[in-house]
Structures are given as C-alpha cells and as structure tokens.
Design a protein around this nucleic acid. Structure first.
Length: 721
RNA sequence: GGGAGCAUAGCUCAGCUGGUUUAGAGCAUCUGCCUUACAAGCAGAGGGUCCGCGGUUCGAACCCGUGUGCUCCCACCA
C-alpha cells in the first residue's frame, strides 16, 4: 500500500468513527468488570458547542478511553439539556424574527411544538459535533432532560419533596426578569458595574412651620427616581442628630404627594448620600427587610414587563427607564431635584436575556436548602468526593453551602417540566404526580363539607415550569433511570459515577446540587472526583461567548486541523482549573505531530518488505532483555527502559488528573526519544535490509507508544495501528 | 466590602511537596540544509534581573512577608 506524503485526517476520521460504532466499542452493559462511569454535562440545546465544551468533552474522552483500555467497563453517557429559560428565549426570538410570530399569540401547546422542533434541529447539531470530536460515548444511552421518564422523575421528586415539607409556595422577594417575564434564581443574575446617576430629591416635611431650625424639606439620594411612588417611609439613623427633629413626622413623596412616616433604623449609613433613605419595600431587598421590620405597606409600582403599574399613579404603562427620564424632568421643573451625581453601582442582569433584573415580591415555589446542604458539604470536606484542583475550589464550595438561601424553583415559562400543582376555586393547593391524583385528594378533602358542584369543579393547574437545574440536578441518577425505575440493574451497577468533568462556572448551579440530590435520593455521592476545567478565553483574555462571537467554530477547526489536532491543541496547555487563552498555534502543533507519527509509520513500513520472510515467531522480550554488544541491541534496551519509565509516569499523572502533562510526556517520548533518537539510531543504511529482530522490536515499540497516545488522539493512532 | 487565582523567552504556556535545570516546550526570529520517514522536517543560533522589594535557607522561579498589575467568585449600602 502506498502511503500519502502527508497525513490527511479527514480521510480517516469518519471511517474510524463509523467503525467503532459498528463494532459497538462505546457501548457498555453491566458485567463482572469494575465500571468506570462518566455522565456528560449535557450541553444546552440552544446552539452549538464552543471551545469550553470541546475542552470538557476531550478531557472526558481521554479518561474514558484510558479506563476502557485499562480493563474497566467504561460507560460515558451523552445527552442534552432542555435549558428552560435559555431555550425558550431563543425560540421566542426565532419565532419573532423568522415567522413574525409573537409568543403571546400562541397557545402553550403550539409554542411547545415549535420548541420541540427547535430541539430536534439543534440537539442533532450538538450530537454531530460530539461525534466529530471522536467522543466515545454510549449513544444508545443518550438522554434528554425532557425525555418521558426524565420528565416524570422530576415531577415525582417535586411531589416527594413537597410531601416532606421541603418544597413550599410563598411570596418572597425574588429576582425578576422583565423581558422573559419570569422569576430567576439568585444564581441566574450576573452583576456588572455600571455608571449611573444618583439623584438628590426634595421630600417636603409636613407642618414645617412647627419645626423650628429645620428646613421645609429633606433631601434623599436615589438611583431609581421612578420608584419613589412606591415609597412607604423614609428612614434615618437613630443616632443622626440632623434628623432627630423628624421623629413622629411625615414627609410627602414628590409628584404624588403621599404622606409617609419617618422611621429610624441603624441600617442607614449616616455617611452615605444625605444620610436618609427612602424605603420602597416592593422594589428593593433591603427596603423589603426594613419594611418587614416596621410593618410597612408594600406598593408595587411596576408590572411584570417592567412598565409602571396603576399603583404608580403616574406614567402608568410606560417602561421603567423611559419613566425615569420623564420623572427626573418633572422633578427638575418643579424644583425638587437638588442635584445629580455620577455614580458607579452594581446592577443585576438576567443571565439569559440581559435585561436588568428587578427585585420583586412574587409568589413562587421554593426548595428549602438547610436540610440538603450538610450531607453535600460533608461529602467534600471528608474527602469522599475529591475536587481537582482542591486547593482552589474547596473553600468556594464550603462558603456557598454554608450560606445557602432557599432555591426559587418556579419559572413563568412554558418550556420545561410543568409544576404538578392544582388549585380549586378557593385557591387551595393540591400537589400530586398527575391530575387524577390531585382530583382524588381534592374530593377526599371535601367529601362531606361542600356541595356537589364545588366538588365536581375542574381544578386549575399551575402554569409555571421548573427551573432547568431542578431537572439537571438529577442527571447522574436519572440517566440510569435511578428515579423512574429505582434499583434497576444499570443504576445499581453504574452509580456512583467516577468523575465529573465540568467548568468551574457551574459549581453552584449544578455540581453542588447534584451532590445534594445524590445524597438525598440515593443516599450516596453521585461521583468520586470532580475535575474542573478552566475557562477557555480568546487571545485578549476574554471569556469565549456567543455574544462576543469570539469562539471559533469547532467543525471548521476540525476541518482545518483534524479532530486529533484539535484535541491535542486544547489539551496540551490546559492544566486542571487553569484558564487557557485559546491559541490556534497549539492546534498547528497537533497537526505537525500527526504528520510526525505518519512519517514514522512510513519509515517502518519501508522496512517491512525487507524483513518480511523472517518476521515471525521471535519473542521480542527475550531479545530486548538479552545482553548484546551490538549497538542496535543497546538502542532497544534503552528505549524499552524509557518506555517503562514513561508508562509509569503517565499512569501517575493521569491518576492525578494532570492530563496536559501526561500528553506532553508522551509527545516528547514519541518525538524526541522514539523518532529522533531510537529510529535514527537503528535506521539501516540506504538499501540495506533491517535486522528482523530490530524490526520486530520497533513494531512493538511503535504499537506501545501509539497505545499510550490513543486516548488523546484516537483517530491517527487507530489508523496507524 | 470579603475570598481565590495568576504574573517565567516577542506570543501561548510547562516547571508537582525548594538542590542534575548553566531555567524548558511549541509558535515566532536568525543561519545552514528540499540528506531516499517527515521542509508540517533536520542541524544549529539568538532571546529570560523566572513582576518589584525584603526575609528564611548552605542553596529559591519554587517557601514566608510586602508592594504592584491582571483575572475570577461571593456580598443588600440608597
């Protein structure tokens, strides 16, 4: 067979992936071997894989292939995440842009049909990319977080937790996304520094003439003048002598002239602003808390979509930012605006829609975390679960788990698991796995006490869906149907998993919650090790993201360099937890490495014809161990020693998850020791046949180094082997 | 405001618990080679007060302190 001058990855990669699939190499079933289980962090169905995914998947594939080669029953479960709010936002946008359809004009069912269409389309793109990278996932186990069994399990878990008193419904101050018009969890809000203005506004004091020594007004600083209509008090520090004369007095909210009391609390910082604070319990978390303390009324001046509500009295229906401008103008005209100052503050933005999040009092579903956290904390602190690199993440993990607030799990969306709660006409609540059960509970409750018409009413189902993480926290369990079919042979065999490989950005969203759910529902950790990869950044150090458009297209890179080279490039400089600046140069290095291997093959093949007739039945081990005076025997011995050393070293490095160092070691073994040194040393003079023993030894060495490299670069090693 | 990490050749990064390292790799630069495995290569060269300053030590890129710069996470100051 004539070998091409250079290695051409495209010509072999697809062939081998198909071959592996046809031989069921990636498929795993429980057997007598020790399992090695990895569940993929399911990518969102919202789009395509970026470089962060590429790094994650590559790391997982290396670990899985290595384990498989070492005799473990390796099982890597692929899948995708419905990503409730992220996907819904995309679908809404797509409908508007491509079809001119407004979400409001669709029924829930119609919308969900579009969403499932979207999922089919993008889910497959992601799966295709995973395959192109060479990932040895067990495709028959592919799971989607809204698969039927998964959906039912999420519902079951909700009902169970509700019945245990861990889930409750209540009005709390939550973060609200006015664009998606849904509640958010605290974790879904990103804070950014922005330059805004601090407005100093006059509030007139009632009966001023009876308050000698005081002006007829006080000045209050605020960033959000559009919320003054929601003020229900103003507050000063009790030790602040400037305001002690205001005790028992009222002041008037500008523009609408509603009188509100002056209260005193040491929460107020005398040094900041004017030392006196307006209290708007409906639209600020601190004000809300003070409001609770002083039993202040709550006036909601904003609608769900961020426009001013009727309660605001003025600018009703106008957008909050538009209203702000107008209100500032009006205050100025009426001489109530003392001054404005530049001011830098932190604003919370919805992670998905990038809208400024509104603190809002809202009736939502919450999961109590107090009980779930301690076992999850203990699992990591005791070393039962090891985080890599631990020195960096143990502290973060600990802090978060010790300072947990209840988790807001309901979302005012359609795409996701609908909350299994029903209401009767009186607003009483029935939580059950399906409508029939809810009805049963309802009828039993009122079997005697209410008339037949009441008892025969159709219960209304809660419209909301669950936070997407309320389904993904069950991932390591439900991919093996551990909740829908508890005790089945897969869950018994594969759980707990071996390693979780993921980005450090979802340590709270996902990792900590999976540990909680594992401890809660399985009574055992979901995995033994957590390997955090770093963030992949662009050359300017920016996080790679779709918004910035600075993430290269994976398929394009694979086309350009080959999947092996992409894997090599992304791995060669990414130690656990360290961020890496993505540099195509390292992909090129991978491509060159491919070629080096290819040419080593060509060289050895060239010798093949010349030693073929005798190339049998010799035991290479004997040869390599036998003492010999000729220089080839020395080379064989030397390389054998080197190989033994590296084998040991690579094993150690990989056990410590130091994959980039392992790859570097193998790279140097192949390039420097095998090619530059060994092959050059034993290379016969042109035209001469090679010693058959040396030939056989070389074949054996080549096979062994290829095996070492195989988990990292599966395609070319398979092709040569 | 609290916490964490990083700072090593022009660039992207290794260098794990201090001593075979006169500080390494790839890319980039320069010189010479299209030598029958490989110019996607080979042979060689240049290039670094290992961020500054103190300290510990027989010995520090590595440990301690401190300063500076960058990044990230957490946090309710209008």
């Amino acid at each position: 067979m004539e070998l091409s001058k250079n290695y051409i990855p495209a010509s072999v990669e697809e062939k081998w992936y198909k071959h592996w699939l046809s031989k069921n190499y990636f498929s795993s079933e429980p057997d007598g071997r020790t399992p090695f289980t990895i569940v993929i962090p399911p990518p969102n169905v919202t789009g395509v894989l970026h470089m962060g995914h590429t790094l994650n998947e590559t790391v997982q594939d290396i670990l899985v292939r290595k384990a498989r080669m070492s005799g473990f029953n390796a099982c890597w479960v692929p899948g995708s995440d419905h990503a409730s709010i992220a996907t819904e936002a995309k679908v809404v946008e797509m409908l508007k842009r491509e079809k001119g359809i407004d979400k409001d004009s669709l029924s829930r069912e119609e919308f969900l049909n579009y969403a499932f269409e979207w999922k089919e389309k993008y889910g497959n793109i992601i799966y295709n990319q995973i395959a192109k990278l060479g990932c040895s996932v067990d495709w028959k186990r592919a799971t989607f977080t809204m698969d039927d069994h998964y959906y039912k399990s999420v519902i079951k878990v909700f009902v169970d937790l509700y019945n245990q008193g861990l889930i409750y419904r209540g009005a709390r101050m939550i973060n609200w996304d006015p664009e998606a018009r849904t509640a958010l969890s605290d974790e879904e809000v990103d804070y950014k520094d922005v330059t805004g203005k601090l407005y100093f506004i006059k509030y007139k004091i009632e009966n001023t003439e009876k308050t000698p020594g005081l002006e007829d007004h006080i000045v209050i600083a605020t960033q959000r003048p559009e919320t003054i209509m929601g003020d229900t008090a103003v507050c000063a520090n009790p030790t602040d002598s400037r305001y002690s004369g205001l005790k028992g007095k009222k002041v008037f909210v500008p523009l609408i002239n509603r009188a509100v009391p002056v209260i005193f609390d040491d929460y107020v910082d005398k040094e900041f602003g004017t030392g006196i604070l307006k209290i708007t319990p409906a639209h600020d978390i601190n004000d809300y808390n003070i409001g609770l303390k002083f039993d202040l009324p709550v006036i909601e001046t904003l609608n769900d979509d961020g426009t001013l509500s009727k309660a605001a009295q003025i600018h009703v229906g106008e957008d909050r930012f538009e209203a702000r401008k107008k209100i500032v103008e009006e205050l100025r005209e009426q001489g109530l605006l003392v001054k404005e100052e530049e001011y830098t503050t932190r604003l919370g933005y919805s992670q998905r829609t990038n809208a400024v999040a509104e603190p809002k009092i809202s009736t939502q579903w919450f999961l109590k975390m107090k009980e779930l956290a301690p076992p999850a904390l203990e699992a990591v602190m005791s070393g039962n679960i090891k985080i890599h690199p631990s020195e960096r993440f143990d502290a973060t993990y600990k802090y978060w788990l010790e300072n947990l607030k209840d988790w807001c799990i309901s979302r005012q969306l359609w795409w996701g698991q609908q909350i299994p709660a029903w209401y009767d006409r009186d607003g009483n609540l029935y939580v059950a796995e399906n409508e029939e059960e809810a009805n049963t509970i309802f009828r039993e409750k009122y079997s005697a006490s209410r008339d037949a018409t009441f008892r025969q009413q159709k219960l209304r189902r809660d419209e909301d869906v669950l936070d997407t993480w309320f389904s993904s926290w069950l991932w390591p369990i439900e991919v093996f149907k551990g909740i829908s079919q508890p005790g089945n042979k897969d869950i018994n065999y594969y759980y707990p998993g071996s390693v979780l490989v993921t980005g450090q950005d979802i340590i709270f969203f996902w990792v900590a919650r999976m540990i909680m759910s594992g401890m809660k529902f399985m009574g055992e950790k979901p995995f033994s090790d957590v390997y955090f990869t770093g963030m992949v950044r662009d050359k300017l150090g920016r996080k790679m993201s779709k918004q910035l458009g600075n993430s290269p297209d994976l398929l394009h890179l694979i086309h350009e360099y080959g999947a092996d080279a992409v894997r090599f490039g992304i791995m060669i400089s990414s130690p656990a937890g360290n961020d890496l600046l993505f540099d195509e140069g390292s992909l090129e290095q991978g491509k060159f490495f491919n070629n080096k291997l290819w040419n080593a093959l060509k060289l050895i093949k060239m010798w093949h014809g010349k030693s073929e007739e005798e190339a049998q039945s010799e035991d290479i081990k004997k040869i390599t161990q036998a003492a010999g005076s000729d220089h080839n025997t020395f080379a064989i011995q030397w390389f054998q020693n080197r190989l033994n050393e590296v084998n040991l070293e690579v094993d150690n490095l990989m056990n410590e998850f130091r994959l980039s160092e392992a790859l570097k070691t193998i790279y140097s073994l192949i390039w420097d020791d095998f090619c530059s040194w060994y092959l050059e040393w034993i290379k016969p003079e042109f035209g001469k046949a090679i010693d058959k023993k040396v030939y056989q030894a070389s074949i054996k060495f080549f096979e062994e180094v290829l095996q070492l490299l195989h988990p990292f670069m599966p395609f070319i090693t398979e092709e040569i082997y």
